[in-house]
Amino acid sequence: MVVFSFFIFDRHTECIYSRSWLPPSVMEGPTPSAAVLTPTPSSAITAIPDLEREHERNNQGGRPRDRRSKAAKAGDDAKLIFGTVFSLRNMVRKLGGDDDAFITYRTGQYKLHYYETVSNLRFVMLTDTAAPSMRNVLHQVYINLWVEYVVKNPLSPVEHKGGDGVKNELFELGLDQFIRGLM
């Protein structure tokens, strides 16, 4: 199983954390420095078989794009993903009742997993299409990593505007280990 990327959105609909794990094919690409074990959220976003594949293809040719456009693209991706899961969640509730939950969707290239807490924190993960349900995994991330390392950190703010307080070492390391353990 391969995990491509992971996002957290807060109740204000802002993306407060994103992270991607490179599949091996990209690690041999023209920018090996992007393939370090703990990629920053802004780097390596090209690894996702993402929503803008077409756009991506036009840019291929071994020329690494500059950081700013990558970061901007990562932000756009996050917004697109949020818009998508938010609409799907609302539609699911409309059809299936308020207790129904949107869990996953699958395309030819990837599978998107979704978990929303009662406090309106949204966890999204993109994996390969063969992956089993990751709902439980996302729930574990919430219980064992988010609550333990972000919420219970007395110095972390309550609101994570711009990702404040989420990017702490314990959380990032724990997440990385947990996800790599699955692959």
Binding site: D99, T117, K152
Partner: peptide, 20 residues
């Protein structure tokens, strides 16, 4: 109030609450 804003997450995690 500031405690409550955080405590709810611990409550939801410990009680395994999945629905409203």
């Amino acid at each position: 109030y500031n405690i409550g804003l955080r405590l709810i997450e611990d409550y939801l995690a410990k009680s395994n609450t999945m629905r409203r």
